[in-house]
Design a binder for these strands. Structure first.
Lengths: 247, 247
DNA sequence: CGCTAGCTTGAAACCGGTCAACTTTTGTGG
DNA sequence: CCACAAAAGTTGACCGGTTTCAAGCTAGCG
């Protein structure tokens, strides 16, 4: 399982054979910390590219044993739980460069399900190994603490009692910025999730999502055609999203 | 600032002079890990009892520089932010034994305000020191990861779109269990926060909180008299709270 | 005593959910 | 490539829980 798996779908592969993962947060952390070759090599051995996962394929399920954190290298991952009535509660969408599975550390088991929304490739980091390594590399330990701490505040979009318009605007602005951070267009991208997924994430009915999209389009805020979306007036969307995103 | 401050209000002091803090999570972690005297002494030097804070006094404010995580030793702490419209959004209430400030690690600054709801005493742990120590004590590092990871899933109560009744029931059950874990009565305790605080936490109008209390009381679920509350039918409350607490 | 913050109660408005019907798209197998 | 079925998305009508607004109450404290 440690032998480097073939990469059948070289998403975002920059051609540099020796950079083990251009999109991974840990890679970035170590490079920033100015570690030399030996440390990078140590980090390298615990990295495992896995996938591709096909659309609808599960990456892990609630209750699965946790032993590795994963960074999304390509594609989109949705995490969710099913509530007492069996209804799906979407917890988050993870784009390339983002890390999933951190909430599993405390229990040693995943508290949620993760499923691929399109073709997904991951970088897996053995958690015991990275934790041991972190004891020797202060920069890595700090980065881990930072990653964990970041996620604590992430639920803001879901937490407040905001209007459907505010939620949707915040959702779109968030996607826009996250795509922009990875070098994609901030104003035009594909929604890799269904309307129902968006609704379950924003705690709205699917019908409401549909209606808000229509209203936004009528107001010339966006242009939507199925999964293709273009943000026409980012300024006004940001104003709408302001109270959610706290700026 | 490192000299041990006097303890003017020995809340929950069990009289054992050598146990530096009976309620602190870190203390517990080290004791469980089976460390001997030397390690405990190391941990001891970075612990600082601070307070008491009076009701309404701020422990930290949004934007303040972060350098220590704190465990509540006595009293109740409320954390909150003010949204774009200046309305208070309560993020959490922290009872004795619980840790505040973890979300500040990633930014190096507190992302929220913390205020004492009654007389509060804290244990402060210098974060740089404890991080350095964690590099040598694997058990401590693991405990830190666990604490951080735990907090990631905490927002569940606020995240879902639950009814006012479900939210309130979950809130009361949560308080009950947390008090019980610290040896207090699980069925009768003081609400140290105002109705408005509860409303801001549960994302309800203060009027709704009032009405739910009344309804619960009429239904013989609870008995409330100002800040004094008694849970009369924990079973039924748990049923109500089930979907929120995900059991 | 009287002020004030906290709390309660009632009436009305509104936002989003639910239900139902329909359209569009996607996927599958002949 | 078409036929068909299933899934996803849209739209309208109606309903209900919560909020909002307004008024009054209560306890605590100077």
């Amino acid at each position: 399982m440690k032998n480097p798996p073939k990469r059948p779908n070289p998403i975002a592969d920059d051609g540099d054979e020796f950079r083990f993962c251009s999109t991974c947060a840990f890679s970035a952390a170590c490079l920033e910390s100015g570690y030399g070759k030996p440390e990078l090599r140590e980090l390298h051995v615990l990295v495992e590219h896995i996938g591709p996962f096909k659309e609808g394929e599960h990456i892990f399920r609630e209750g699965d044993e946790f032993n590795a954190i994963a960074a999304v290298r390509g594609g989109t991952v949705k995490t969710y739980v099913n509530d007492a009535e069996g209804r799906e509660q979407v917890q988050g969408f993870f784009l390339p460069g983002e890390v999933i599975g951190l909430s599993a550390i405390s229990q040693g088991r995943y508290p949620c399900n993760a499923v691929a929304l399109d073709t997904v490739i991951l970088c897996n980091f053995s958690f015991p190994t990275i934790a041991a390594l972190a004891a020797r590399l202060p920069g890595l330990q700090a980065q881990l603490f930072r990653l964990l701490s970041q996620d604590i505040g992430k639920a803001a979009l879901l937490a407040g009692n905001y209007s459907a318009d505010e939620r949707m605007a915040a959702f779109l602005i968030s996607l826009s910025r996250r795509y922009a951070a990875r070098g994609f267009s901030p104003t035009r991208f594909q929604l890799t999730m269904t309307r129902t997924d968006i609704a379950n994430y924003l705690r709205l009915a699917a019908e409401s999502v549909s209606r808000v999209f229509r209203r936004f389009q009528d107001d010339k805020l966006i242009r939507v055609d199925r999964r293709d979306i273009e943000l026409l007036d980012v300024k006004r969307l940001e104003v709408l999203a302001r109270s959610v995103l706290r700026e």
